[in-house]
Design a protein around this nucleic acid. Structure first.
Lengths: 261, 261
DNA sequence: AAAAGCGTTCCGATAAGCGAAACAGATGGA
DNA sequence: TCCATCTGTTTCGCTTATCGGAACGCTTTT
């Protein structure tokens, strides 16, 4: 980026715009002239940049002619903060749980009918589930996914079923709407979701919902282990720990329901 | 913006970049191809945009080759959220206080040695202080400013004095470092700051600090009235109400010190 | 009254940046 | 195993987007 090496894929105009936005991270209010001095740019150039940022809603003029962060920037910021918050707040409890149980634990959210992994801490056993941040997977065939589907409004569940269907991965996959609905009903009652080799033979999971600051279950925390280490007794013992970890994350996100516990 | 009217101050490249960022407000993870489909852009074009956004730290590649919000975006978001939060969280308490007292109340922050007004609710009396969001003013000659200066580290206070000096506006302006320091000492002790016609003859104010989620006094809440309505007795009566309003805002910002009260 | 500051507009020269097409790895199905 | 088909990346020549000097009103300061 410094002189010398030139990058053929560098858009100067966009780069300048981002530099301007960066200034607003430090100070909430700038005039054109101030930015021109700060960034060493000509006034017409910056005028165009500011004009474009304003048209896009990223900046807005305040009472005086000065520029301030706009609605789009606020929306973008809120979204980024929320995601980062979930991701990093959840890390310590995940680490503790992974350490204590030796199994891979992860946090995921629902997006467009699929589960997206947001954070992972791998277990310590040689044979363990592999997971990666950013990975997408089917919602109906994972504990994480079912824990989230269970609290969705009916209409949204319908839409997801219509869009993705219920592809079968193993003999145990819940491949009919009836079976899935029944499972979701039980999940709501008990407050956690199982996955008994429904996605991959030999892989068992359990997951509990995480509620955000509005109280809605917007993410889930799960634990995955090979069937050899996850018999009924061990799962029984793990359920409260997974639920406790999910509750702890919920509390850190400011969930009203999780406060008194 | 739609076809027909063309804007000579529109930077196409920057605009596209902002559209890309907007996508990340809705979904945390995108591939180049997905964005190309969503925005109807060619792949090389988007590749350049993503490359530039990544180089600037606004986006980053996650485990797979997919793009996710980067550190710069997170920093920007956190800053925007914090500012907006102070601004809108403070509004309801300000409205109540303005309604009950009939006077103009406002919230301000310190920036580069000056007070910047962040939110205002005007009073109901015909004769009232006029204030505008975004307005800047001297810190040493306003209640808001002094409430903030009082909690600054010594070095920072020094720097501000060196930079702006202590210009005199009225006979009562604190125009010497000694007078100011003494005043700030008292302010720390009593937890609120006065302004007795120090900026404008006939204008009296009082202000109390607002502490943010880190516990630091990062803003202040003030009430301004003409001297005719603000004798010693009335000010005495108003102090606890201004302090209570400031405390309420602090609590809403998650200030640890303000929680138990 | 003059001067200095601001944001805004104009304009011609330049190179920034666009898209078609080609390329290279990865992935997955037959 | 090979082929089909996705990715993301690179190249290249044409065009037009866009840059900065300079000039313009306007408000604020002296």
């Amino acid at each position: 980026m410094p002189p010398g090496a030139k990058d053929p894929y560098h858009l100067a105009s966009l780069h300048r715009g981002l530099e301007v936005l960066g200034c607003f991270a430090r100070r909430p209010s700038w005039s054109l002239a101030e930015l021109a001095a700060e960034l060493g740019q000509s006034k017409p150039t910056l005028f165009r940049v500011l004009h474009t940022l304003e048209a896009a809603g990223y900046l807005a003029k305040d009472g005086a002619g000065r520029y301030a962060p706009g609605l789009a920037l606020h929306a973008l910021g809120a979204s980024a903060v929320r995601q980062e918050q979930l991701r990093w707040q959840s890390l310590p409890p995940l680490q503790v749980l992974a350490e204590e149980t030796g199994e891979t634990v992860h946090v995921g959210i629902l997006h467009e009918g699929e589960v997206v992994t947001v954070q992972v801490v791998e277990g310590t056993h040689a044979l363990r589930m592999h997971a990666r941040v950013g990975k997408r997977g089917p919602a109906h065939a994972s504990a994480l996914g079912k824990a989230l589907l269970a609290y969705l409004p009916d209409a949204e569940l319908e839409a997801i079923l219509a869009r993705h269907g219920l592809p079968r991965f193993t003999p145990r996959t819940l491949a009919t709407p009836e079976a899935l609905r029944e499972a979701l009903h039980r999940i709501r009652q008990q407050g956690w979701a199982p996955d008994d080799e429904e996605l991959e033979p030999g892989l068992r999971c359990l997951a509990a919902p995480i509620t955000d600051h509005t109280g809605r279950p917007s993410a889930a925390l799960g634990l995955s282990a090979p069937a050899a280490r996850m018999d009924a007794a061990r799962r029984e013992a793990l359920v409260p720990r997974v639920k406790a970890a999910a509750l702890q994350v919920s509390r850190m996100l400011g969930s009203p329901g999780a406060m008194a516990a």
